[in-house]
Simulated scan of single mutants.
Amino acid sequence: MSHRLDGAVRVTGGFVLLSAWFALENGAAALALTLLAAAAHECGHLAALRLCGCGVRRVRIGILGAEMETERSRLRYGAELFCLLAGPGVNLLLAALLMIPARTWPGWYAAVGANLTLGAFNLLPIRPLDGGAALELLTAWRFGPAAGERAARACGALCAAALSAGLLRLIWASGGNLWLLPAAGGLAAACLKELSGWPGPRQGRRLRRSL
């Protein structure tokens, strides 16, 4: 089940349910801060793509985050890397800037945390996160596309497995904090997809990331 917006943006039912669950567990204010940080993240990517003369064909927002599809074949490696890192870069920059008012009004620390967490999480070397795509790109830039795919697959599978196991252990130690379960499941799925050779031979190049 999914909800289409303007024909170019797709929001899945899984994302709606996950957002509702987050709001019930953490409150509407926490959800609003998270969504604002995610919007800033996406605006960073979109602004970078526009600067590089590359448009977005469609956006899909699902349980694992947002996925942009764009024709990037004309982008050079440096420009493509800039577009990938623009999203987490905006979040980390906002986190640093928001520290200024947070010193006077502690309530701002929640916004700092939302942007810092989102920016750092997306830099993990796991596809479809920005860090995983950046690792693939950097390795391909130096050693070729095949080496980039192998590096991203191996590093992504190892990191995703370790983080998933760590979250499952944390769930057990915390007495069953189910809010960590979607993240653990998503990381486990990413690990299995990399180990099984997913994605297969690519027909196009896409920016794919998680919120």
Rank of each mutant, 00 (worst) to 15 (best):
Arg103Ser: 11
Leu135Asp: 04
Ala134Asn: 05
Val112Glu: 02
Ala133Gln: 15
Pro125Gln: 07
Met99Pro: 00
Ala133Asn: 13
Ala95Gly: 06
Leu97Val: 15
Ala96Asn: 03
Gly113Glu: 07
Pro106Gln: 05
Leu98Phe: 15
Ala110Glu: 12
Ala110Gly: 13
Leu118Pro: 08
Pro128Ile: 08
Phe121Trp: 13
Asn91Gln: 08
Ala133Ile: 01
Gly131His: 12
Ala95Glu: 01
Asn91Glu: 08
Asp130Cys: 07
Gly89Ala: 13
Leu135Pro: 04
Leu124Gly: 04
Ala110Phe: 13
Thr104Cys: 01
Leu93Pro: 01
Gly119Arg: 03
Thr104Leu: 14
Arg103Leu: 15
Leu123His: 10
Asn122Glu: 11
Ala96Tyr: 02
Ala134Lys: 03
Asn91Val: 07
Pro125Leu: 07
Ala133Thr: 02
Ala111Cys: 07
Leu129Gln: 03
Leu138Thr: 13
Leu137Met: 14
Ala134Ile: 12
Ala110His: 13
Leu116Gln: 03
Leu123Ser: 09
Leu92His: 07
Trp105Leu: 14
Leu93Asp: 00
Asp130Tyr: 06
Gly119His: 09
Leu94Trp: 03
Ala95Pro: 03
Leu94Gln: 05
Leu98Cys: 04
Glu136Ile: 00
Leu118Trp: 12
Ala95Trp: 02
Gly132Val: 10
Gly132His: 09
Arg127Asn: 00
Leu137Asn: 01
Leu94Ala: 12
Trp105His: 14
Pro128Asn: 10
Leu94Phe: 13
